[in-house]
Amino acid sequence: MLPLILVNVLVILGPSVATVYYSFTEWSGIGPAEWVGLQNYTDILRDTDFWSALGNNLLWTAIFLTVPIAMGLGGAFLLSQITRFQMIFRVLYFIPYVMASVVNAALWQNILDPDRGIGSTLANFGIPWLEGVSFFGSERLALPAVAFVDNWHWWGFVVLLFLTALQSVDRELYEAAKMDGAGRWQQFVNVTIPGIRATLVFVVLMTIIGSLLVFDYVYIITQGGPAGASEVVGTLMYKEAFGRFEAGYAAALGLGMSFMSGLIVLIFVYLRRRGWEI
């Protein structure tokens, strides 16, 4: 076990402890660090860019707690109803999840390009509504457009999680519900949801944490633009550390987001210990 412990100390524990220390310093990322105490944290509370980015994180969380989870449940239910070619559909849904973020982002940047993307193609067929629309260049559309791309990558994974959970639900419960006169919606609410509750809670927890720490698709596609419209805390932290050389301030940002994620996990643990079975 010693090599594994050594790797964890060097890659995880060491940087984590260093981040805690540097969050209390003014440091450019190179050279000595100057101890400033809680100054970075008080600066965060006064930073309008931070609050704007955090607002975008919360909007991102709201999107991902609804759209991909609803799509995942719907897709899993449809897949559970078929027996032929189910494995093919599983693979097709899962392909976007295993593709590199850069590849997915480049694909959708070309598809949604305002000049040569899907808008201009549809215009050639007499459907001009999307022609010239700059999805990633609009302050109003940038964040939802990037979330759409990330959702395309994420929801297939959610489908497989829910499908596995659905297949573990006892079929006799559905038969009993039918005998009691329950329709499909009543079966879904009273049999399916309780049967997959553990998976549903896990997906919700992963979604919230992932939404608070989102970085890759936003940075690859828009770098937080235009004019900060799609800025999230992850991209703001990157710019502070490697653009403005405020590594100490960036460490405080990162530690704050990690604290929020940990707090969410503690809330779930508390609810479980209070008797909310998952």
Rank of each mutant, 00 (worst) to 15 (best):
V133P: 00
L73T: 04
F64P: 01
G74F: 13
L107R: 01
F77T: 13
F77H: 14
Y97N: 14
R90W: 04
P114L: 00
S120H: 04
F64M: 06
L107T: 09
Q109I: 08
V149E: 04
A70V: 13
I127N: 08
N151H: 05
G119K: 11
N124F: 11
Q109S: 10
A100Q: 14
A106F: 10
F148E: 00
F148H: 00
G74Y: 10
G72E: 05
W129M: 11
D150T: 03
A105L: 07
V133H: 04
L143W: 04
G137A: 08
Q109Y: 07
M87Y: 11
N110Q: 08
I118S: 08
L79D: 07
F148C: 05
T121V: 09
R140H: 04
S101G: 12
A145L: 06
R140E: 13
N110Y: 09
P96S: 10
G137T: 09
Y97S: 14
F85T: 08
S138F: 04
S134C: 01
A100M: 15
V146H: 08
W129V: 08
P68M: 07
S80F: 08
D113K: 06
L112Q: 02
S101H: 13
W108I: 03
L107A: 07
A147C: 07
I118T: 05
T83N: 15
V102W: 08
M87Q: 14
L73I: 10
S138P: 05
S134L: 05
L130W: 01
M71T: 04
R140Y: 09
E139S: 14
T121H: 12
R140K: 09
I88V: 15
F135S: 02
P128R: 10
F136P: 03
Q86C: 03
L79N: 10
S101R: 11
I118Q: 11
F94K: 06
R90P: 01
S120G: 00
L143T: 06
F89H: 10
G119M: 06
N104C: 08
D113Q: 05
G119L: 02
G117D: 04
I88P: 14
L107Y: 07
S80W: 10
I82R: 12
E131I: 02
V146L: 09
F77Y: 13
